[in-house]
Write a protein that binds this DNA or RNA. Structure first.
Lengths: 116, 116
DNA sequence: TTAATATATGAACAAATGTTCATATATTCA
DNA sequence: TGAATATATGAACATTTGTTCATATATTAA
């Protein structure tokens, strides 16, 4: 910790430090971004944002093994980014809420605008 | 790729597959989420969303080494999430645009709502 | 019941990541 | 000029991650 710099107002910095979200919140946020960082999981979310799908359908749409997809879905499920409903032997996945969709769209927009 | 499942409409799936963002876009989006996945980088962005800061100030506010902060800033810079301006011997960092702030706020809201 | 289908999970391994340490560069001040 | 300050960078390391392979579980159909 550097506290020598003339620009540093220690009182202000201390206050800003206090105002950071608590560790638990930071951890949960980073966990979500961590989940959105994988190509496979991103594609799953893009697909689910169009329509709910069973694992078979995802398997058919993506170029990774069914096992990889199941693992990815578990991660997304644990963060409550997607949810499942069972229909007979099928597991139908869908987006947990609109937040996810907005997140992805925003990011998409950022990327598209920057490369334009 | 499983194409046997009775739920799979191969034509539809193929079409959805075509509509996925291209690989380059997916990669850039995942790179951004990847950057937002680190506690240190998240905290930096939270701090910068309040006011622009030099490395000293960040160093003072965070509990990692100056080296770690510089490395983090480089990552954020390369993705155009933050920008620098030089002022004498100081490097002043600030958020590149509003997107980042919105992203973080959204995610914050998601986490807060879900744990409520 | 048995076979087939749909999904989940554990182990293992390569690849990628974040941090620290040591050091380099750049700017200012004396 | 030299010393001090501010920032950046490369190497190295432990840790984490995503995938595949093999296999387990669950549901349906015959």
């Amino acid at each position: 910790m550097n506290d020598a710099c003339i620009r540093v107002d220690k009182t202000l910095i201390e206050q800003m430090k206090q105002n950071l979200p608590d560790e638990q919140t930071i951890n949960r946020i980073s966990a979500i971004f961590q989940a959105l960082q994988s190509d496979t999981r991103l594609k799953i979310l893009f697909l689910l944002s169009k329509k709910e799908m069973c694992v078979c359908e995802l398997d058919c749409a993506l170029d990774v093994t069914q096992s990889a997809i199941s693992h990815s879905l578990r991660t997304l499920r644990q963060l409550d980014l997607v949810r499942v409903k069972k229909q007979g032997r099928f597991a139908i996945y869908y987006l947990a809420d609109e937040h996810v969709k907005i997140l992805i769209d925003l990011c998409n927009k950022h990327v598209t605008e920057c490369s334009a």
